[in-house]
Design a protein around this nucleic acid. Sequence first.
DNA 1: GAAATAAGTCAACATGGCTGACGTAAAATC
DNA 2: GATTTTACGTCAGCCATGTTGACTTATTTC
Lengths: 165, 165
Amino acid sequence: MADVKSGPNPLFLREEDLRQGIELLFYAYRDFTAEPDAMLAKIGLGRAHHRVVYFVGRYPGINVTELLGILQITKQSLARVLGDLVSQEYIAQRAGTKDRRQRLLTLTEKGQELERTLSDAQRARIAQAYRAAGAAAVEGFRTVMLGIIDADDRAKFQPPGPGKR
Amino acid sequence: MADVKSGPNPLFLREEDLRQGIELLFYAYRDFTAEPDAMLAKIGLGRAHHRVVYFVGRYPGINVTELLGILQITKQSLARVLGDLVSQEYIAQRAGTKDRRQRLLTLTEKGQELERTLSDAQRARIAQAYRAAGAAAVEGFRTVMLGIIDADDRAKFQPPGPGKR
DNA sequence: GAAATAAGTCAACATGGCTGACGTAAAATC
DNA sequence: GATTTTACGTCAGCCATGTTGACTTATTTC
C-alpha cells in the first residue's frame, strides 16, 4: 500500500492538508444531513429513521443482521427505530422463505415515498457538486472516499463482480 | 485523466451515481469517527468534546459565538461540553481585551495533547487515502467536497486572501 | 441612559446510542 | 433426536448530545 507509484509524485502531505481533509468531512457531513433532518423533525422522526429507510430501500429484502452490519449499531438501538417504521407502515416485514427466522424488510409505498423525499435533498446536493466539479474530479472524489472507508466495506462499491453478498 | 471530454460536458448523473455518493459519505463519516470515538469513551468524553477541542485548536483564541457558528448547535449544548473541558483543564478561557464580554478559548498543554491524540487517527486515515489516491484525485476530492458544503462556509477553505475573518 | 450583545445558567425534554438479561423459534450440528 | 447455535425480539436502565424557553450579568454600542 505504501508504494504510490514511484515517479514524479511524492505527494507532500503537510499538516495543513490533512487538517483540511478533516474539516472537509466535518462540514460536508454537517450540511449533507441538515436538510433531511429538518424534514424528519416535522414528522416526528430522526436521522436514525432515515438511515434505516435508506438502506432498506437500497437493499430490498435485507434482513436485520445485515442491516445491523451496515449501520454498526446494536440490535436494541435498531429495534426502536425499526419498530416506529413498521408500526407507522413505512416498512413491511416478512419471514424469510429459506430461513424462516429471518425478518426480511422492504419499503411500503409510503416508505418509498418518504425515502425519496428525504434523499432527494441529498441527491440534489451531490448532483450539483458533481456537475460543478466535472467528471475527472468526481473520479478523484470516489477514489479518496473509498480510501477513507474501512477496507471491508469497499467491496460494496465495486461493480457487480463475483460478490458473495 | 479519464475522458474529461472537451466541449460541453453534460456529465450524465444516473440515480446510481448519486446513490453511491450518498453512501460514500455515510460510510466514510462512520469510519472516520469510529476511532476517536473509541478513545474518547475511555476517558469519559464524547464526540462533541472532540469537535470543540479540534476547533479551539484550529482557531486559538476563538470566542464562543464564533465556535457556535461553526458547530451549529445551541449555546446550551455547547455549555455542557465546554464546561467539562474547562473544568478538566483541557481548555482555558480568558476575557477578550478589545471586548471584555468575550471569552476567548485556547487549548492548554493537556488539551493540545488530547487534540493531537484524537485527530492523529483521523489524519493517518486521510493521509493513507490521499497517498493511495494520488495528487490529482485529491484535487478532485477537494473540489467535490467543497461543492457539497454550503456556500457560506466554502470561504474557510480559500487560501488566505482578503478574508474578513 | 437605553438598547443590544456576549456569555452563562436553570429546567425540562427528545433522540439515539449503550449494556445486561432474558425469551422464543428455527436451523444446524453432534 | 437432543443439543447448540443463530436470528430476532424485548424489558429496563443509563449516558451523551441535541432541543426550547426563560432569565441573569456584564459590557458595549447607540
